[in-house]
Design a protein around this nucleic acid. Structure first.
Lengths: 332, 332
DNA sequence: CATTGTTATGAAAGCGCTTTCATGCTGGTT
DNA sequence: AACCAGCATGAAAGCGCTTTCATAACAATG
């Protein structure tokens, strides 16, 4: 690997000049620029990223901390994130928080030690305060969550709108007794979806019996258990809105075991529109979020914050309902 | 951020000693070690990764180049990879090749410029030669592919065994006319799965009519088209083995549209055991590969190659058949 | 022609570590 | 008492860049 010194010698200039040619920020006579450039070519020169980072104190890389790398749309999200970042020659350091608050913190420390210039955070477990403190230290954008005092740095999906739409859809089909299986309520998206549900119910002057809302754990098994809980409590609902597709699937499976037909006896609606939702029979009616757009916005916003690459765009995205086959009118 | 110098001053030792304490490779008197360590604590010291990399000429990071970040098990794979690497305090630079050979090459260059110490490659498009050349430059492990002259650095699934098992299973159920819908044949895994199919057929003295094998594109739509091609050619098969679950799902959907019952009229078997396979009705019989184990082995092997962290383990993994509901005995 | 201002360039000082080499200290050996 | 091996430590030289500061070259001005 050749160094800047060799390039400088070959071009007959100083290292400083080579550096200036690379940065492109400083005027350099056309003839010297050319000499330097051909020297770089001739030596197949690639600057040493570490030396550069050490001297300039920026890494040209951003960290991505993901609460759970295996989550539903992390794949889709990362594809876009990586793509946008690389278009500006920034690298992506990925680290997972493994769904554990303490581990999330440690992951952030890890990324910090790597001195990334900015950070993308999909943090479920960390508190607003910690996030705000971190945002003081370096440019940060929060994914899929709204931290009020950091609103300008949060790119997220309007989850209450999603919960609301799902519930409205059911109400529109004549349902009145609607159960809600939520995700873990310590996660913001779960509480927001629940809020959407409550809002829709309230708007339709439908009472929400506390027996009707079950806190699940976002897994298929959790969906099944939730149905059992509902049964045990003797809740007689004609529809259920689930906090995610996994739980919807689990609930449907259990419901069928108990002899209910979907959507004949009971309607079900999911959330996330995972890849498999339309493979189900019947296809799962669910809420779809524009993950790629969100990722794109997040990358752009971070680039703007960190490297002053200008961008103007929305930070909040609305999800929409995808109608398939798990919702039917209430039988009377 | 405090530097090594400050730590050294506070502890009353030289920078060299602090460095030695950190590396842990060199003997240091217990008392000085303690003084240094408490100084580090007091100053909340974290070494500057760039300075370290520059001086030592290793980045403590490995690059992951993935042919297609959005692929079926990339999520599962990355979770494990990241976890194992981080356990040794190595960071993971992720970059996607976007299913394009040229782009894969560029991605490798990108990672190379970032000076990672080693590289994990899930390369579909690059040639064996290129891979071998790269392996000369730095420690490399190839994921999910076998490059003969780099066998010791390839961690992969035995795809011919998978194709074989799928086909055997069908033959065992009395099927004789078995079609095969493959993935793009320029990808090694697709051709290997096809080889497995051919081997099983040959072993059972079953002729493979060239009309029976259709090259698909690994998508659901491709699965549907493949069925149409089969129909158009007038192939009368009682079973089909698909190159992946996506195509299996597409084929099943199209088959149903054409009035066939699964598995009553025709059996179908997939490959990959994607998350949704068991959600289908009936559940998709498919081939399951131990992705996590593979990822674990890959990480371990790379660590061994790059940082001499010893490890001894298998490099090839056998997939297995998961029986669900899409295969039945041949009706006579 | 002397003076000033402008601009491209070079010299050199770091950035914060690692690593080599030299050194001083200990305790065991003769 | 003299000697040496062994070992912990310090001094200092980089690693390959960026950036400040100084300077040479030149054009413009009075």
């Amino acid at each position: 690997m050749s160094t800047i010194r060799e390039v400088a010698e070959l071009a007959g200039v100083s290292q400083a000049t080579v550096s200036r040619v690379m940065s492109g920020e400083v005027p350099v006579t056309e003839s010297t620029r050319q000499r330097v450039e051909s020297a770089m070519q001739a030596l197949d020169y690639a600057p040493n990223a570490f030396a550069r980072s050490l001297a300039s104190n920026r890494s040209q890389g951003v960290g991505l901390m993901i609460s759970h790398l295996g989550g539903p749309f992390m794949g889709r999200m990362m594809v876009t994130l990586e793509d946008r970042l690389r278009a500006y020659d920034k690298s992506l350091l990925v680290a997972s928080g493994r769904s554990d608050p303490e581990r999330e913190r440690e992951t952030v420390r890890f990324l910090l030690a790597r001195r990334c210039d900015g950070m993308l955070l999909h943090a479920d477990g960390m508190g607003d305060d910690e996030l705000a403190a971190l945002a003081e230290r370096l440019p940060v954008v929060i994914l899929n969550r709204l931290v009020p005092r950091l609103a300008e740095q949060c790119v997220h999906i309007d989850n209450v709108a999603g919960g609301y739409q799902a519930t409205r859809h059911l109400i529109g089909h004549g349902h009145r007794a609607i159960a809600c299986i939520t995700g873990p309520l310590w996660k913001q998206d779960a509480t927001q979806r629940l809020m959407g549900y409550r809002r829709a119910m309230a708007e339709a002057h439908l009472a929400v019996d506390s027996d009707c809302v079950i806190e699940g754990d976002s897994t298929e098994a959790g969906g099944r258990r939730a149905v059992d809980r509902l049964e045990a409590r003797g809740v007689a609902c004609t529809a259920v809105v689930a906090g995610n597709d996994e739980m919807a699937v689990g609930a449907m499976a259990r419901l069928r075991e108990l002899g209910r037909r979907i959507p004949g006896d009971i309607s079900v609606i999911g959330y996330d529109d995972e890849a498999y939702a339309h493979h189900l029979t019947p296809g799962l009616t669910t809420i779809h979020a524009p993950i790629e757009e969100m990722a794109e916005a997040a990358a752009a916003r971070l680039l703007e914050l960190t490297y002053e690459l200008p961008w103007q765009g929305p930070l909040v995205f609305r999800p929409w309902l995808v109608e398939r086959g798990t919702v039917a009118g209430r039988r009377d």
